[in-house]
């Protein structure tokens, strides 16, 4: 009894209370986000290179996509092979709205998210009850379905030519997305905001509900968690961020192409997560940067870039059995010799 009281006393004295810890963690994340955004936004003033800005824009698109996939794969244990369909949906939805209607960009943005949510809710309602491998296959099947719909419905989507003729970008709130620097800053803002929101999801009570489900879905239901509802919710939320990534991509290339909705996009998402690791929040972001650098350098030097990328994947998957950030985390935890932050 005395030992217990002593333990409690030392805890109240030594460690901060739950309230302050929660407050601090959020405060810290917002601070990191602001600093990251400031650094990214300052980049164009120091480096005039268009290629660098292009690279960051692509990182934003794929980073949003890959991190949202990690909410499913790493946090909830739902391995989706069709997450790329929402990337494609975002690109096409946004592109079509801008080309065919005269709505301002923010309206098209929100409308695309709404459309994505409806699709994700319907597809998710069918998929999330399925066990691992069936979930993976059925999500993949939906991806194929959306891809072939895009190909065959040529009058709407331009078929295999994609949405051509450019995406109009009327100025809104003084932001002119036809201006490369404006587009760059907007992409960075979407990336940082998206990551911040996903981080909030991951660290919220709901985020821990996801971990609980990943660890042991059966037990989760016996502590009163509605597993199906939680899975559907995260499926839809993740789709929204993937869709945002697709919109950034559409703005970047000023169009939308069937490849954006092809299964290889989902494959790349999985690949990025393997590269960066799924046990840390920023793993997929690191993976994105790695993959894009790899892609760009390898394609510059050899036409056999598929083989090189394949070899790298095999190295990470079979050789290391984890992603890069998993290693960093392990190293950090060992140095600190305490429990580290886990996924």
């Amino acid at each position: 009894m005395t030992e217990l009281q002593a333990g409690r006393a030392s805890e109240t004295l030594g460690a901060p209370s739950i309230e302050t810890r929660s407050f601090r963690s959020r405060y810290r994340d917002i601070l990191i986000a602001l600093v990251a955004f400031a650094v990214l936004a300052a980049l164009p003033f120091f480096f005039g290179s268009k290629a660098l800005l292009d690279f960051v824009i692509r990182c934003s698109a794929f980073g949003l996509f890959a991190t949202s996939l990690n909410l499913l794969v790493g946090y909830t244990g739902m391995i989706s092979f069709g997450h790329g369909m929402f990337f494609g949906l975002g690109a096409y939805g946004f592109g079509l709205l801008m080309q065919r209607t005269a709505v301002p960009i923010p309206v098209a943005f929100v409308a695309t998210l709404a459309i994505t949510a409806v699709f994700a809710a319907i597809i998710g309602a069918i998929c999330v009850r399925l066990k691992e491998i069936y979930f993976a296959f059925v999500t993949l099947a939906f991806q194929m379905l959306i891809h072939s719909t895009i190909l065959t419905w040529a009058s709407l989507t331009g078929g295999d030519q994609g949405l051509r003729g450019g995406i109009p970008r009327p100025v809104f709130f003084g932001i002119d997305l036809a201006n490369h620097v404006h587009l760059y800053i907007t992409s960075c803002a979407l990336l940082v905001l998206g990551l911040l929101l996903m981080r909030q999801i991951a660290q919220s009570p709901f985020g821990y509900t996801l971990r609980v489900i990943r660890d042991n879905a059966r037990r989760a239901s016996f502590i009163g968690i509605d597993v199906w509802r939680a899975k559907l919710t995260i499926f839809v939320l993740a789709a929204l961020f993937a869709s945002t990534g697709g919109m950034v991509m559409a703005l970047f290339v000023s169009g939308a192409y069937p490849e954006f909705a092809y299964w290889t996009i989902s494959g790349e998402g999985i690949f990025i997560n393997m590269l960066g690791g799924v046990t840390t929040f920023l793993g997929p972001m690191v993976g994105t940067v790695l993959l894009l650098i790899l892609n760009d350098t390898v394609t510059r030097y050899t036409e056999y870039h598929g083989i090189v990328l394949g070899a790298v994947i095999l190295f990470f998957a079979i050789g290391l059995r984890k992603g890069l950030m998993d290693y960093v985390l392990e190293w950090y935890t060992q140095r600190r010799d305490g429990p580290g932050e886990r996924g």
Binding site: I18, S22, R26, Q200, S204, P205, Y208, T209, I223, G224
Partner: peptide
């Protein structure tokens, strides 16, 4: 979960 707060998104765990 018992307090029906397992779906809370806007606050931090715990």
């Amino acid at each position: 979960a018992d307090q029906r707060r397992s779906t809370v998104l806007h606050r931090r765990f715990p």
